[in-house]
Design a binder for these strands. Structure first.
Lengths: 290, 290
DNA sequence: CGCACTCTGAAAATTTCTTTTCATGACAGT
DNA sequence: ACTGTCATGAAAAGAAATTTTCAGAGTGCG
């Protein structure tokens, strides 16, 4: 049969010479953005190509398919093959490891998370947050929950090197009021709150807002309740083949932000880092001597 | 509205709780081999899922779509996005972002790091470390440096939930001797030490070895000096288009290890987690009452 | 110019898909 | 045990999609 092992695209190409004007027009419309353009109904693709539906029927029959549904079934198969086996999906990331090894399954999941998160992420949001973080007139406060506390700490540690006026709120909420007390209008509170949202985050966000602080929230696709109070929100895909959620993509965004801030204020940062290096050296030297 | 920017998969997940038995069955059939399984007609997918066509209609409406055609149109869009934007064609990860946006450059770098790290990683090492971490007769100690301290904390927080006898050494080295004092032969010390290796890590590793402890080191491609004393070493690719090194892949390995440990000791862990849940509930209740 | 031929899309006919209606059965609360 | 509610699928009704028919337009050729 004509369309047995060859792809639909191949079949179209091989018959291209025998096609009529309207059919060629249709064929080109199909090959343009192939194979997705053939996903819709016969009416849709006829309209897109600017031809009539009978033309579509005649062509697919000329190509050797039984009818439009048959044609489309073949296309679906191809789409499936393309999707379930994209170059991205390495059947084996780690050499010698079976495709089902936890490392490989994790790698697949993380790549999927990264792709989904990035395609849903608005770069304007990213750039705005980066510029808020860069503004040295604003003090920065970081806070995370039980699990995400480590991410807040990681973010804080870097920002503390890059610029002054940064603080890390302990994940224990009892000390929060003192920090809120010190917040000034325009200060920035960065909240990490993912699934198993912590009720106290909403209280903290509310209090911070009352003091005039801006809020940035890192949360998952379902959204922390604190996100409602936020100026900017990062919704991150966190699913992993695990009983736990994955923070890998969150860390990715954090690192990208760190770099964005660092490069946008490099002149000021350079001096700070030099000074800091010197301080570390002194400490080391001091210990050796003692 | 509901299905504006979120993917169909997201929408299904977020509504999953409110779905009925037949609808859940359908949802799972759709998510299995997503999104290709939703390409056919309503009749086809109903048959594949083993439910009736009205069930399909009811579910997609419950999910916020106008009807099956609307649902399918969204799916088609996603398929298109997936196909015309594969990772292989990684010039644009985030839609709307120019190829040179920091997010895209970072994504490329992380992809490369992940691939290189995994292809160099021996799965036997991974499995051995997972089994060492699972062994409840061994106490676990985690330690990190200035930057990697957050990773150690992240690892520790999870392991602490999964099993008893875990400790986090503060990144301040003055308290380390007390921990070393308590180490017994067979105990496991997990060290994070990447570029700008901290001299004290070697001292710590040496002291721990003298006490008979096993050592696992997470380091970069150049290798921490402490790695010489380690039973197992993870050499991780950490380069990023940034003034800072990237911890994303390190976190990836950590999460994969957490899952490996968790799943290998699920029976024992299950009980612990239930108890822990209860304790959290009590704490919350306590706060509310007070 | 006229004839024969092919290509093309409008419209009708047909088939298939989608939605609605409704009867049945399961189940929780009284 | 009774009653109300909900989930479910069979079947009918309704809406599209697909295919066929057919007439007009264009083209090549004598």
């Amino acid at each position: 049969m004509t369309a047995a092992s060859k792809t639909v695209s191949d079949v179209i190409h091989s018959h291209f010479g025998t096609l009529t004007r309207a059919e060629k027009q249709l064929a080109e419309s199909l090959l343009d953005n192939y194979p997705v353009s053939g996903l819709g109904s016969i009416t849709t693709i006829a309209e897109n190509a600017g031809v009539s539906t009978p033309t579509v029927v005649r062509m697919v029959q000329k190509l050797g398919f039984k009818g439009y549904p048959d044609f489309q079934a073949h296309l679906h198969q191809e789409v499936e093959a393309t999707i379930s086996n994209p170059i991205a999906k390495h059947d084996r990331w780690a050499s010698n490891a079976p495709g089902t090894h936890i490392l490989n399954r994790f790698a697949d999941a993380i790549m999927g998370n990264l792709r989904q998160t990035l395609s849903a992420l608005d770069t304007a949001t990213f750039d705005s947050v980066a510029s808020l973080l860069s503004d040295r007139k604003r003090s920065l406060y970081f806070v995370g929950g039980r699990i995400t506390g480590a991410l807040a700490e990681y973010f804080f540690t870097h920002m503390q090197v890059i610029r002054p006026n940064t603080a890390l709120l302990s994940s224990n909420s009892s000390s929060w009021p003192q920090y809120v007390l010190n917040m000034n209008p325009g200060d920035l509170l960065v909240i990490f709150d993912i699934r198993r949202y912590e009720q106290e985050m909403v209280s903290l966000a509310t209090a911070a807002r009352k003091r005039g602080a801006e809020i940035v929230v890192f949360t998952d696709q379902w959204g922390s309740p604190a996100a409602k109070l936020a100026r900017h929100t990062f919704r991150i895909q966190i699913e992993a083949p695990s009983a736990w959620d994955s923070s890998v993509v969150t860390l990715f965004i954090v690192e990208a932000l760190i770099e964005a801030v660092q490069s946008s204020t490099w002149d000021e940062t350079k001096e700070r880092m030099k000074t800091l290096e010197g301080l570390f050296e002194q400490t080391r030297l001091f210990r050796k001597l003692s």
